[in-house]
Amino acid sequence: MAVRHLEVEVRREPGGAVLDLRGEINGFAEEALDTAYAEAERDNPETILLNFEEVDYINSTGIALIVGLLARARAAKRRLVAYGLSDHYVEIFNITRLSDFVSVFPDEESALSGAA
């Protein structure tokens, strides 16, 4: 199966900056994630939301990249929240214990209201 490299778009919403993730989060995703995260940080939002609705593959290197984003968010006293995770990826967040530190919401509406 062809690899779908990660594409990330940044949107600004009243509750925070949203990173729309599309494709695979693996070692190849580092540059796209870093660039998009830096773009999202530009307006100094209190919250950055990661939208996983269009993510169809995460490996352990991808999880490490998300930990890196979380560390950057914490250093800047920003909240990092996630939404649109399938049950499988909620489970992965639990296995890796990312869910101890990243609030996970079912959809954008609840994430934005939860982040407010």
Binding site: Y57, R74, F101
Partner: peptide, 30 residues
């Protein structure tokens, strides 16, 4: 710093349909 995880506490019925993830076989069970 420990945030709540609302999704794991009570997910709605209308959540997106479960997809068959390609990486499922590679991850351990929790």
């Amino acid at each position: 710093m420990t945030d709540q995880t609302p999704q794991s506490e009570g997910r709605g019925e209308e959540r997106q349909p479960s997809r068959e993830p390609r990486d499922a076989a590679f991850w351990a069970q929790r």
